[in-house]
């Protein structure tokens, strides 16, 4: 990562500068057009948070060579049990912790399967998703005897706080901080080197005396915990309740963010925000009466959040290397 050539670096700086100017101009134009960007940014930050958390965890996980596509399932299960924990322990913060612990537990089980039992990681991940989709509504019935929906009382929520751009959840700041910390850990610490070695050259790491299995178990658990936090964020800090399809495919969007970023946590954060912002923007524009003039326009607007990241990844990011041992179980011979 240090061997960035001079030309590449300057190109990158240029890209950053251009995007910054473009964003400023864009926000100014939005303001002039009567679509206040403040609210779009605020909504975008909310939409970003679960994606950024799950994607950062998954970035670290994949750096160590394990692919967990069960993020959707983790979202769903942790979101319910987190609420249950909050209600039992009497505080929203405790609920967030319980949610992350549930995510960590699923991640741990997934780690056991993929590290020691040589599971096909993609099948196991899909299984977690199918399990979560069924288990969430079942838990709603089992815990609250109320089908498909649960509302959380005020005293068990994580309160939102007032900031200059409006009401935000404290978890949003965590979601911004975590990728930065992850970036530093991955690129500046020995732990980061160990993680990357486990994903790139597990044999070499093994020879060098590192326990690849331990590293991978750690990242699986950590990745699960972060996805779990993302899931419980939705129920305790955003919507103040649960519906059975609360994640609605966001686990897969988080995976797209991981790929968007090429496993860089900072880019994953950017990707998550771009998606959230584009989604908020599209739905804001869609309610202006003019948007109904052509029947296709509202539908096109709904595609915008998906078009924008794809265009950005095509133009600015392109090909990125993935760890060589990604998805391959490593067994000491």
């Amino acid at each position: 990562m240090i061997t960035i050539g001079r030309i590449r670096l300057s190109k990158r700086v240029l890209a950053y500068a251009i995007s910054l100017i473009a964003i400023t101009v864009f926000l100014y134009l939005l303001d002039r057009a009567g679509v206040p960007p403040k609210d779009i940014i605020r909504s975008g930050l909310f939409a970003m948070t679960p994606l950024a958390l799950a994607a950062t965890g998954e970035c670290i996980n994949e750096k160590a060579g394990v692919v967990n596509i069960g993020l959707e399932g983790i979202f769903l299960v942790s979101c319910v049990i987190g609420v249950f924990g909050a209600e039992r322990l009497g505080s929203g913060i405790a609920g967030l912790l319980v949610g992350s612990l549930v995510g960590a537990f699923i991640g741990f089980i997934f780690g056991l399967m993929s590290v020691y039992a040589r599971a096909n990681q993609v099948v196991a991940g899909m299984g977690i998703n199918v399990f979560g989709i069924g288990f969430l509504p079942f838990l709603l019935m089992a815990i609250w005897a109320f089908p498909g929906i649960h509302l959380v009382r005020k005293e068990f929520l994580v309160p939102k706080i007032l900031t200059p751009i409006g009401l935000l959840s404290p978890v949003i700041f965590v979601a911004i901080a975590v990728p930065i910390i992850a970036h530093i850990i991955l690129n500046r610490t020995f732990l980061g080197i160990k993680i990357k070695a486990a994903g790139e050259k597990p044999e070499a790491a093994d020879v060098a005396g590192q326990r690849v299995d331990h590293i991978r178990m750690f990242t699986c658990t950590l990745g699960g915990a972060m996805a779990g936090l993302g899931g419980v964020f939705m129920s305790l800090a955003w919507f103040d309740g649960i519906v059975k399809e609360i994640a609605a495919g966001r686990g897969f969007i988080a995976l797209a963010c991981v790929v968007f970023a090429g496993l860089s946590p900072l880019l994953a954060l950017a990707g998550a925000f771009i998606f959230g912002f584009a989604e908020a923007l599209a739905y804001t524009v869609a309610i202006t009466p003019g948007a109904k003039v052509y029947p296709f326009l509202p539908y096109f607007l709904k595609m915008v959040p998906y078009i924008v990241p794809l265009v950005i990844v095509t133009i600015f990011i392109g090909r990125r290397p993935f760890p060589k041992a990604l998805g391959k179980p490593y067994i000491r011979e």
Partner: peptide, 25 residues
């Protein structure tokens, strides 16, 4: 058995399908 639990059971079966190496293990 509520249909939701059926879904969860199916998920578990799929997860187990990920473990062809289990026998070898």
């Amino acid at each position: 058995i509520s249909s939701e639990l059926v879904g969860a059971i199916q998920g578990v079966i799929i997860i187990a399908m990920a473990l062809p190496g289990l026998l070898a293990l």
